[in-house]
Design a protein around this nucleic acid. Structure first.
Lengths: 359, 359
DNA sequence: CCCAGTTTCGGAACCGTTTTCAGCGAATCA
DNA sequence: TGATTCGCTGAAAACGGTTCCGAAACTGGG
């Protein structure tokens, strides 16, 4: 009924399926499938005919059907705190490039470092049957049901930037302890004696490592640990601002900040208080960016290999997806101290030089 | 044969399917499906039994199977130039939040503003049967086969930041013309008489709009257009650096740069040449960032509503996915001039005031 | 010329959902 | 109490691939 004896499938708005090309080239779907994945050798003539049909129909295999059949999606989920935090874009970029190289796509999620959002994102990713998940773990433990599901589907995770052995021992992180150690050692060499710390949330592994590096560097430099000079933030600007106010009121002569965003907050606070860096206090912070060299104060930073962080995480994850049984491993990448001006090294050089020459 | 009369499916490493919960709760799969999507009313007792089984088995529907059956993936592809360009993270974040709110996920791709990569990404996204695509179009035209495929699958696109009517008229962009116009008008008000431009690649709509705004503002201020003071870059640091060298050698007293990354390059060049901003030249650039207020030179910028750009693009795209037939529309968001210090407004105020008082 | 051994190919089951189409039972009304 | 309608329920067919298995075609040797 209706408009004539059409075969019922409206031609418009319908991508060709493997059946269409099979019919077009007068072979079975198996043969088409075989030439697509060039599997078991298909005769030259048939192969040509099939390829011709594929071109003619603009056929592209439906990857969701393939995913269902093969039980793998060639998609990996990536959960970061917040892509708008300038730290993450480069690691995401590193991950995306590595993923694509292996034929994988990236499903990007933001957790805002919130357990609840993180759990929701993971559930969704599991439902989408991603082949693996890259996770910058927020503080807190998964609810039992989620843990069960994760165990049940047996999907590989690899942690990025932060460890969380309860979930998996596979992780790629930066050597935060060393980075912090270098940073405050440098501050001390530059002549600082009362060094403050604005740390990340101590519920999270890298904040702990950075704090520990801070303490140990202090100790090895023979400097006292003053409780009033240590403030815990949450890696965001606002917390750096508050911490900055609190900290600077105790008049440290140097401060080490555990990430860039909090450094920005600290600088805001300093400006409000009429304090200048590096004249009034030395400063070294984590995370470096290409543009930090052109703005004053020229920040002395410890740079993390962000891109590599992302790419190595993906490489490891894909090895796991492919069933690698290499033993669980946390890959620790080395940071790099980039000395510019905010540490006041030039300023205090003479004093520093005289003390170090005494050794 | 083998180890007894086991039912053959190894229990380990296998997520429960809808059949499992149907068997467990002794109903048909239809009923289970019905309670999951709470469709046609299912009796209270049955519903309870099913939900109980779901909980017990930690069942989560397999979204790839659902996608295949429903012919929609609830996934949207987003192609940006480069997520590591600080401009994009916030628009991606805006997009991700909006997408999630509607139950969609974001598949993120980088094109490096390269036609070839862009085409590959699109093909992949089409194969993955994403429901729609957000695209910051690179320069150049799709190859015919791709155009055909796009037409054939009839998938909605919405353009972000750059228009490209050949593909679709749906776009959400910023009012680049106005932004540029305001920027250089402000420079002129601040007393600049020889204003230079570092533009984006003129193969791309927003670079053209910004250049046009530059010209018109010059004209309306009665300032001459000097060809040697206009240089085309590609929105990256390196090109800003080269352009900066070339431009500053002609000694402009003001320069307007079409994005932040090139501004960074310009500042590098200025430093190498011993030129200071705003003492030696006024500067206003596009893109603002939370941290620009704490570093010197404090950049005067025209800020684009990045987050909104992303979210509105998603909203429009989803309306299209849902079959909205509202007429094609480019949504133009207003930029905001943020006056700080790099424009030298304070510096030249007196001169500017005297001239404007004469009018 | 015949038969065993390889390729090559086609048929059909399967992946986990949704959804159509009947059928069955219960509830409402006369 | 019996008939009619309505609400639920279940079997089965898509969705678009992959892949096992058996059959057909082709090869070569005796």
């Amino acid at each position: 009924m209706g408009s004539g004896k059409s075969n019922g499938r409206s031609k418009a708005n319908k991508a060709a399926s493997i059946y269409d090309v099979a019919r077009e080239s007068k072979v079975s779907v198996f043969t088409v499938s075989a030439v697509i994945n060039n599997k078991s050798h298909v005769g030259k003539k048939l192969r040509d005919r099939v390829e011709e049909a594929i071109r003619k129909l603009h056929y592209r295999p439906n990857l969701v059907a393939r995913s269902l059949a093969k039980q793998q999606t060639h998609t990996i989920g990536m959960i970061v705190s917040d892509i708008a935090n300038p730290f993450f874009p480069m690691v995401v970029r590193g991950a995306e490039d590595a993923a694509r190289k292996h034929g994988y796509n990236l499903l990007l999620c933001n957790s805002d470092d919130t357990l609840e959002k993180e759990e929701n994102q993971i559930e969704l990713l599991l439902s989408k049957r991603v082949d693996g998940i890259l996770l910058t773990k927020a503080a807190g433990e998964f609810r039992p049901a989620l843990q069960q599901m994760i165990k049940q589907v047996n999907i590989p995770f690899v942690l990025v930037m932060r460890t969380y052995p309860k979930l998996t021992k596979d992780a790629v992180i930066s050597d935060d302890y060393q980075g912090a150690y270098d940073a405050v050692s440098h501050l001390a060499r530059a002549g600082c004696r009362r060094i403050g710390l604005i740390s990340g949330p101590l519920t999270v592994s890298n904040a702990i490592a950075r704090s520990q590096g801070f303490r140990d560097a202090l100790k090895s430099q023979g400097l006292p640990f003053e409780k009033s000079l240590v403030i815990e933030g949450d890696y965001r600007i606002e917390s750096g601002f508050r911490a900055g106010h609190a900290l600077l009121s105790h008049q440290p002569d140097g401060v080490y900040v555990a990430n860039h965003l909090m450094t920005v907050g600290l600088l805001q606070a300093a400006e409000e208080m009429g304090l200048k860096c590096p004249d009034d206090f030395g400063l070294v912070s984590f995370d470096d960016y290409p543009w930090l060299g052109v703005f004053r104060p020229k920040l002395t930073t410890v740079e993390l290999p962000k891109r590599q962080l992302g790419s190595e995480a993906v490489e490891l994850l894909i090895r796991r997806i492919d069933g690698s049984s290499e033993k669980a491993t946390v890959r620790k990448l080395q940071p790099e101290l980039r000395i510019r001006e905010s540490c006041g090294f030039a300023l205090h050089m003479s004093r520093s030089a005289s003390t170090s020459s005494g050794k």
